[in-house]
């Protein structure tokens, strides 16, 4: 039996580190992959106080009930996906523990929680022209008067589905796309960003939940 396993992020085959710079410079757009971000899909009835309280108790974060909003505490973010659906984003390696805490807190309530950490690739985009690049492929209004930090939108970017989360005022956005589309959307972003000057960043700036973590032993799923 082999002793170690190299886990592969969605964009591992592009060897981005070979083209990357360590810190953001003066490029119009900075792109990075945020690999191995822990992601759980949580389903439940948000009109049920017991459900909301249990989630709050397990995660320490208020469940975002307002559409298109994100709540976060420390390294845990909860992204609204629908009136009964959320994406719980947690640090690499914490998925199982948090899933377990949710299961315990929600015992007796109709809910579902599922580890989907490899379902979506996460791409970080920031820089003075980050919004312009997104505007090329996204029809949602991202103007600061309308869309700001702590907001999210499920929509399309170019020709694929995207979950967009504005992380900060910079602006920095996290783009969640299904893993099989990651190569396409990365190439699309590089193409669209060219006119503004593009830098690939080795380490995601402010990537609390997405930084490369040491290998953890895989565990049998529940």
């Amino acid at each position: 039996m082999p002793k170690s396993y190299l886990r592969q992020s969605a964009l591992a085959h592009l060897h981005l580190e070979a083209h990357a710079v360590e810190v953001a410079g003066d490029a119009g757009v900075d792109l990075c992959e945020r690999p191995f971000r822990g992601q759980l899909v949580l389903r439940g009835d948000c009109t049920d106080n017991a459900f909301r309280d249990a989630v709050q108790q397990a995660l320490g974060v208020t469940l975002p009930v307002e559409p298109n909003s994100v709540t976060n505490v420390d390294q845990v973010s909860v992204i609204w996906l629908g009136p009964d659906e959320w994406l719980v984003v947690v640090p690499d390696g914490h998925e199982q523990a948090i899933e377990q805490e949710l299961r315990e807190a929600l015992a007796g309530i109709h809910f579902a929680v599922t580890d989907v950490g490899d379902s979506r690739a996460v791409i970080g985009i920031s820089g003075p022209h980050a919004r312009d690049v997104l505007k090329k492929g996204c029809s949602v209004d991202l103007h600061p008067r309308v869309f700001g930090p702590g907001q999210c939108a499920q929509t399309a970017l170019a020709r694929c589905h995207m979950l967009l989360h504005q992380v900060n005022q910079a602006p920095t956005y996290d783009i969640y796309v299904h893993r099989s589309f990651a190569d396409y959307i990365w190439c699309w972003l590089e193409d669209a960003a060219q006119e503004f000057g593009l830098a690939i960043i080795a380490q995601a700036p402010g990537a609390s939940a997405g930084a490369r973590a040491p290998e953890s032993e895989p565990v049998v799923p529940a």
Binding site: P2, Y5, R7, Q8, F36, G117, D118, R179, P218
Partner: peptide, 8 residues
């Protein structure tokens, strides 16, 4: 297996 371990 989770997609990250597919190649392994």
């Amino acid at each position: 297996v989770p997609a990250r371990y597919d190649l392994a």
